[in-house]
Design a protein around this nucleic acid. Sequence first.
RNA 1: GGGGAUAUGGCGGAAUUGGUAGACGCGCUAGCUUCAGAAGCUAGUAAACUUAUGUUUGUGGAGGUUCAAGUCCUCUUAUCCCCACCA
Length: 840
Amino acid sequence: MFSTFLSNLADIKLITYNISIMKRYNPKEIEPKWQAIWDETNIYSADLNSNKPKYIAMSMFNYPSGAGLHIGHAMNYTISDVKARFKRQQGFESYHPVGWDSFGLPAENFAIKSGISPQESMARVIPGYHKQYKAMGWSNDWEKEIATHTPEYYKWTQWIFIELFKNGLVYQDSRMQWWCEKDKTVLANEQVIDGKCWRHDSAEDPLVEKKEVKQWFFKITDYADELLESIDDLDWSESVKLAQRNWIGKSVGAEIDFKVKDSNESIKVFTTAHDTIYGVTFMVLAPELELVTKLTTKENEQMVQDYVRATERKTEVERQSSKEKTGVFTGSYAINPINGKEIPIWIADYVLEGYGTGAIMAVPGADERDYHFAKKFGIDIIKVTGEEEFTNYADIKTSLSKFKLINSDEFNGLSFKEGRLKILDKLKEQKVAKEKVNYRMLDWSVSRQRYWGAPIPIINCPKCGPVLVPEADLPVVLPEISDFQSSGDGRSALARATDWLSVKCPNCHGDAERETDTLDTYIDSSWYMYRYFDPRNQQVIFDSNLAKKWEPIDFYNGADHATAHLLYARFIARFFTKIGLINDPEPFKQFLFNGKITASDGKMFSKSKGNGVDPLEIINEGYGADALRTYLMFAAPLDLWVKWDPQGVPGAYRFLNRVWNLTQEYLESGEGSLSDDVKIQINKSIHSMIKKVTEDIEANRYNTAISAAMTATNDLYKIKIKHLNKDPLWQEALESLVACIAPFAPHMSDELWQHLGHSSTVNKDSWPKYDEKYLVSDSMEIVVQVNGKVRAKLELSTGINEDKIFEAVMQNPRINELLASKELIKKIYIPGKLVSLVVK
RNA sequence: GGGGAUAUGGCGGAAUUGGUAGACGCGCUAGCUUCAGAAGCUAGUAAACUUAUGUUUGUGGAGGUUCAAGUCCUCUUAUCCCCACCA
């Protein structure tokens, strides 16, 4: 498709039209030329100490893989690049940073297979990206490039671990963790998707398992409330804000102790409906709880053990897919603190270890799941709420307070609301309950049994236990090794790096060993935006004053990582704020969750399917980066998914070509001047374009910004047929047009800007201003509707008053005809727009 | 099961927030140019009817509010996304 067109393009005959003598648009020539000039002049290097107002726009940084740049990257980084360029042209000190999220599993897996170390593959792969990023025309500041796998960077990732530790936000715990047999590593909950590892989720991949592992945790739950509450004020895509709220999953309720009969044990439960406590007819523990063994009686031991084992073998998917309730009785009873009733204690897999306390008070009279369980096992069901008479359905929906408690002794007749307060008071008096807020979000497990990450700065001493590496000894450099396979005992390949492993305890100076776990790579990406403010600092993580000047990130975008990454980054920012490094607890002022690009059939692009579109191929074929960029930004609103249209890039190319040719024709036009009439037309067209493009880029409506530039180009084409000459207004019009498309097509714009006589670049301080006075015209079109239907359009002068307008309407022959022998009941005038007449 | 979003020509999508539906682009049609193709330029392109000025219908479906509804309200259908035995 492309090749037919382009082979022709290449040997285009210079005989058509009158462009024979003028330069033709050839991206293959001008794009590398300008990329070299930008490189030499360093024009995209931001002066962080500048007095200009600052602006920083960035997309989520890239994981460098052998596959190189794909069309999804082209989408993401062009979005932030357009924003950065727009602001740069507007006179901001605009910073479009670049970096590499270069730690992580793919490079390590590749190393295991190939024997090529991750350090080496990064050294090979990253320079390739440099070329590709430049070929796309992205205005990155290469002087401040960072990569998370360099000791200069991960020294500070380790430093963050130490600071969090010193502030009581790090702890070690043994947990049953998801374990990926293929990667030989534990996984965070969010890395388990449909029961499989997020990196191994195809049909033939194994399901994840649970394994007990000692791990380090960050106490992100300490910040749960703050993180939740401040979501409201963020200028972020709504879907992402919602995902964050759900992820944190706050619920307000109570924690209640149930004593176990004939035992010193008690069962703590979390409930949001303590008002139903009179309806509790049994307790359920998650099978994994330690308490289960203690509460199981001799007679039930075998049955319980069998059930627990069966549950362990079940995957999360199996547990969730079967709605049929299963469970066994432990043989023990608990005492309901509100009325002293004995209630049987069961275990069942519908209660999850990880949520709340892992135990529930079951109220089959109120909860559907408990109801099904009770039905199946013949347990009592007590109804504890009754309804008042309702006159309509809406009342039931809107007013829970109309439900009254029943079967609840002294609380009978109270509404839910009152019952909640009074029942809780009574339980609190007995000291068996307290208000409790529960979160779905758990603490952040940061240990990974992998090689290719930042080593955890901990030394395990047989005498002193885990001891922090002293700050002066940072970074704990990842040793270069040759066998990257996990040690197989659950530890990373680092366990075999014996020289590196043995070390003296900083505390007692006895023999000790380094921690062999590395840090979750999400930590690397949770603070990188701040390192951009001071990427070469060896003394501190970053200059706090610079960070305070440049925070927050004004514009951030990405098509993935809507929950984990953004939540972790917000957590770290809050911590940085607490320790005084920065002032703003929110790292990203604006976040755009942009759509992805798929193949024409709506399926994801993938190498294996062979349906990929290579951005560089399109550039090299002759359409150029400018046309590709313009198409990607024009195809749809940024938050929608785009289906790749093979005709899209040629279409964008055609538009750029029109702008190019128009400029060339102007440059070759003769002396002359324009009539006032034509001047009004040109001014109106150009100034409304400037207004629309300015507002639309600001509001992330790139597609309509580009269409406004197209409309103006079309207008100018119509005018130029008869009125093209060297009048200064033509110069001004073309400069405005070129400047307005520069964020999308920066190479061509710089070339044309030069043709138009500028020695400076269009990419700085060139944004045109519009003047409202050109947008108003002295006539207006008034639409006349009769009974809601458009029947006439009148061209009237703007100064005319309402009476005169109606007069003009009535004089219109067509309207006259329609009103004949009808009675005019109502007339409405919407200023400057329309007249609506109602007749009978 | 819960929550959210979307639905407009042959296609991607516009629509000043209740005021001329279909901007802009793709595709298609015709004309010019060309040996020819491609590119370029000009014009047309929601549907049906009409010689024509025009008329009627039309924003997933059914109702409603209004002088006026793609936009607001009620119900409904389909698609997509997120969360999911969350106590």
